[in-house]
């Protein structure tokens, strides 16, 4: 009884809608193909969406403060490239990874200071750094992928397994757990929600809202840089176009997961499940031999349906 009761409580969770959608979509795909619901396929799918999901963790925190970070794809791509450059120049793998993450830190500080110190709208600030990042990547690579020598231990990050689970998925799970705890159990998390919920009220209550905003942009870029390092470790090739356009998929994941672009509402778990749903659709399209060009259209439809349902549910006065 108690278990049943607790299960029923789950439907009050914000993530409930998207979780149900994920399960229904999985069942739907399984009706048409026996290859979907296998351990190896599911692990492959998870590895495929893990990078988007990792980046969506940072993005959802930014969105909860009422902001947006368009530069995540550039931070990811440039971080991978700088890591590759370090290997190329003969630095140790630790130095290379640190340099990659350092790129993220620099992106985040730039975004955060443009937004808090100068007062640029987040959309504009991060649009600018997005372009700068892309430009830098083409300037550095001249459009040619970089494939330096790397030690085997480094490729474990992107290619390895823990039991049956790919390492990027393990990293995703750990980050999801850590940031869920931060957002729901710590003072910082509470301040993030308060800043997005009502910035004036938060500031007048003593919340240092500018500091909170700076922190979420730094986290978002650094997490994206980590995704970039993992991507490089997986392919061992730094592509000039790596990460391009991924910001849209990452924002979509957060929105499908229930985050409100007006701020104050959203969750890390929701965003990660949102990314999983997008990954699942991509996989389904391939398995069912649907024209792959249709994938984007289907994802777009899912975004609209998911967010519309969420809006309608809130209008009906249900608990958000």
């Amino acid at each position: 009884m108690r278990v049943l009761h607790q299960l029923l409580q789950l439907r009050h969770m914000r993530e409930f809608n998207v979780l149900i959608a994920l399960i229904l979509m999985g069942l739907l795909i399984s009706l048409f193909t026996p290859y979907f619901l296998t351990v190896s396929n599911l692990m492959g799918v998870s590895r495929a969406f893990s990078l988007t999901a990792i980046m969506s963790i940072g993005m959802v925190m930014v969105i909860i403060t009422g902001g947006i970070d368009l530069s995540v794809g550039s931070a990811m791509g440039l971080a991978g490239l700088i890591t590759a450059l370090c290997f190329d120049a003969g630095y140790s793998q630790y130095a290379a990874v640190a340099a990659g993450l350092g790129v993220g830190l620099a992106f985040g500080l730039t975004n955060g200071l443009l937004i808090t110190a100068i007062g640029l709208p987040p959309f504009i600030a991060t649009l600018g750094t997005l372009s700068i990042g892309r430009g830098l990547m083409y300037m550095i690579t001249h459009g040619v992928p970089l494939t330096p020598e790397t030690p085997d231990s480094f490729s474990f990050l992107g290619q390895g397994y823990v039991g049956p689970v790919p390492v990027p998925v393990v990293i995703l799970l750990v980050l999801t757990l850590i940031f869920t705890v931060i957002m729901t159990r710590t003072r910082f998390g509470r301040h993030v929600y308060a800043t997005g919920g009502n910035e004036n009220a938060a500031r007048l209550s003593g919340v240092k809202v500018q500091r909170v905003k700076l922190a979420v942009y730094v986290l978002s870029s650094t997490i994206s840089a980590l995704a970039g390092v993992i991507a490089f470790s997986r392919y061992l090739s730094a592509e000039p176009a790596s990460g391009f356009g991924s910001e849209l998929e990452v924002i979509a994941a957060a929105a499908i997961g229930g985050a409100s672009l007006a701020g104050g509402i959203g969750s890390v778990l929701g965003a990660v499940i949102g990314a999983a749903l997008i990954g699942e659709i991509a996989n389904g399209v391939v398995l069912l031999n649907i024209n792959t060009y249709a994938q984007q259209a289907i994802t777009g439809g899912v975004i609209l349906i998911a967010v519309s349902l969420d809006v309608l549910r809130n209008r009906m006065g249900g608990r958000g």
Partner: peptide, 19 residues
């Protein structure tokens, strides 16, 4: 508009000044 975060609970609004 300036005193409360309307979407938050009574508890979360209450403690915001002295969390």
């Amino acid at each position: 508009s300036r005193g409360l975060v309307l979407g938050m609970s009574v508890r979360e609004n209450f403690s915001l000044t002295h969390l």
